Simulated assay, not measured.
Amino acid sequence: MGAPTAPAERSGGAASARATYPVRTDEDLITVRHAVRAATVETGFGLVDQTRVVTAASELARNAYIHGGGGTVTIEFPRNAGRRGVRLTVRDEGPGIPDLETALADGFSTGSGLGHGLGGARRLMHEFEVHTEAGRGTTISVTRWNTQ
């Protein structure tokens, strides 16, 4: 299994850790799932929220791998008003998303999938932000806050 491309930067405790993982192979997708699961456990998420975040991470990383030709997933631990969260930033240098509104619609798929990837990931997370540009790639940042 792959390792983070850069060691986790730690200053001030685990909540400030940050690690970036490559997404270039099927094995990298598994590594990302395990790392995201560990991040949700570290942040104190319950099982349902752990599953939500891991599912969103899987969808986004798979999209970067298949449609973006590979990329990276960065895991961070933001804090806001005493809440802890997990933020995932998924980057690729692929062709970009030509019609973002259509790509976010349920049922839209550029492959053989069910078409729940981007829209599903958006519903699973509290915050969802996309930056995409034709020929320059896509960056998607999502955050889920621990509400327990």
Score class of each variant (00 low, 15 high):
64 A>L: 02
78 P>G: 01
60 L>Y: 09
64 A>T: 05
59 E>H: 09
78 P>V: 02
66 I>Y: 09
61 A>R: 05
62 R>D: 14
53 V>A: 07
82 G>Q: 12
63 N>R: 05
74 T>L: 01
62 R>Q: 13
68 G>M: 05
72 T>Y: 07
77 F>W: 09
53 V>Y: 05
52 R>Q: 11
62 R>C: 11
67 H>D: 15
67 H>S: 15
54 V>C: 09
60 L>E: 05
75 I>A: 04
65 Y>A: 14
80 N>E: 15
70 G>P: 11
63 N>W: 00
70 G>Y: 12
64 A>P: 01
80 N>V: 09
76 E>N: 07
81 A>L: 10
68 G>F: 02
60 L>D: 08
55 T>Q: 11
81 A>T: 01
75 I>C: 02
64 A>V: 09
76 E>D: 12
72 T>K: 05
69 G>T: 09
55 T>F: 03
73 V>W: 09
80 N>Q: 14
53 V>F: 03
55 T>A: 14
72 T>S: 14
59 E>Y: 10
56 A>M: 04
58 S>H: 13
80 N>I: 04
76 E>M: 03
78 P>I: 02
66 I>K: 13
64 A>K: 01
73 V>D: 09
75 I>T: 08
67 H>I: 13
78 P>K: 03
77 F>V: 00
55 T>N: 04
71 G>A: 06
59 E>W: 04
77 F>I: 00
53 V>R: 02
60 L>N: 10
58 S>V: 02
81 A>V: 00
